[in-house]
């Protein structure tokens, strides 16, 4: 197990290297000179020249990359052009919001998506199945921001149940009750992803329910609910876990939109604002971290996969 984990961590290195090259090239692909982009329109030629020299822009591209990558390895992602503070600090400021949002969203997805998927598959072909699986598909067809806007209109503006925007830190006044700021955003973000999980759980359970061992379980005289959960769902979980990496990617995409709709001070909105402000060091840093997170989550998924399926051996 430990050996396998280390080996997998080693295989992450080439992927990360390629990703870092792509991310590094991204700034250099932007039309124009990076130094003048970084300094903005008001910069004098002298300032641009001095920054160019400082950034090593006069050196060959591969040397520039090595310098940048060495700095990244030391945790130095550069300075934010807009905030004039280290990129890592800017990202850290948004981390709390994004992590809280992600956890609450996962809570809804698991709490709603999995049971509804099980019910949908267990009543396959009935009206219950048609409503739940059709409803899930409808939910996945709704633009995230549109759903968020109408949730704000109904539950914040109309009923006044929840705040419509922002998120004070849970370490500020109000403590954990500040999480109420995240209820609407997390529901918005959970909706399409829970819908995907419903469809996924349903499809995998239907696949498993056609397998021979399910007939064996029924021949034991077990209650249908027990067959559904212990035998069908447990085996379907293998396929669901395998698709979890993709769910994460979808989650990040939609978090960008959701945080913007609800004006949450998270990493997702930071990306959008940095793109609009052309704050390239921040964009580079955030994207590199998200790719790293994606790879780590996929590694965890693989490890979980081996725990779920005894036929898989970690060699």
């Amino acid at each position: 197990m430990l050996g396998y984990t280390l080996k997998r961590l080693l295989t992450l290195i080439p992927t990360l290297l390629v990703a870092s090259i792509l991310i590094f090239l991204f700034v250099h692909l932007i039309p124009g000179d990076p130094a003048s982009i970084l300094l903005g329109d008001s910069a004098t030629p002298e300032e641009i020249a001095s920054l160019s020299a400082h950034m090593g822009l006069d050196r060959p591209l591969w040397q520039q990359y090595l310098v940048w990558f060495k700095n990244v390895l030391h945790g130095d992602f550069g300075q934010s052009i807009f905030f004039k503070t280290p990129v890592l600090e800017v990202i850290a400021d948004g981390a709390e919001t994004s992590i809280c949002l992600a956890l609450m969203t996962m809570f809804w997805i698991v709490l709603i998506g999995i049971p509804v998927g099980i019910v949908s598959a267990s009543f396959h072909g009935s009206w219950v199945d048609q409503i739940t699986s059709g409803g899930a598909m409808l939910l996945a067809s709704i633009p995230t921001f549109w759903l968020g806007l109408y949730l704000i209109l109904i539950f914040s503006v109309g009923l006044g149940w929840f705040p419509s925007s922002g998120f004070p830190s849970i370490s500020d006044e109000g403590g954990l009750s500040n999480l109420r700021y995240l209820i609407l955003p997390s529901l918005t973000l959970a909706a399409p992803n829970a819908a995907l999980i419903v469809r996924l759980v349903r499809a995998s359970m239907l696949d498993v329910s056609r397998e021979d061992h399910v007939r064996t379980a029924r021949a034991k005289g077990l209650h249908p609910a027990r067959v559904s959960i212990k035998h069908v769902f447990r085996n379907a979980l293998i396929a669901v876990a395998a698709a979890f990496g993709f769910t994460f990617a979808a989650l990040v995409s939609e978090a960008v939109v959701t945080e913007t709709v609800f004006s949450l001070p998270g990493i997702g909105r930071l990306v959008v604002q940095s793109i609009l402000r052309r704050d390239y060091p921040v964009i580079q840093g955030v994207i590199l971290l998200i790719v790293l997170l994606y790879l780590v989550i996929n590694l965890l998924v693989d490890l979980a996969y081996a725990r779920l399926d005894p036929r898989v051996s970690l060699q």
Binding site: A19, V252, S253, I290, V291
Partner: peptide, 11 residues
Amino acid sequence: MAFPALLLALV
């Protein structure tokens, strides 16, 4: 594929 779809599009 490690870049989330919308993020890749935005970039």
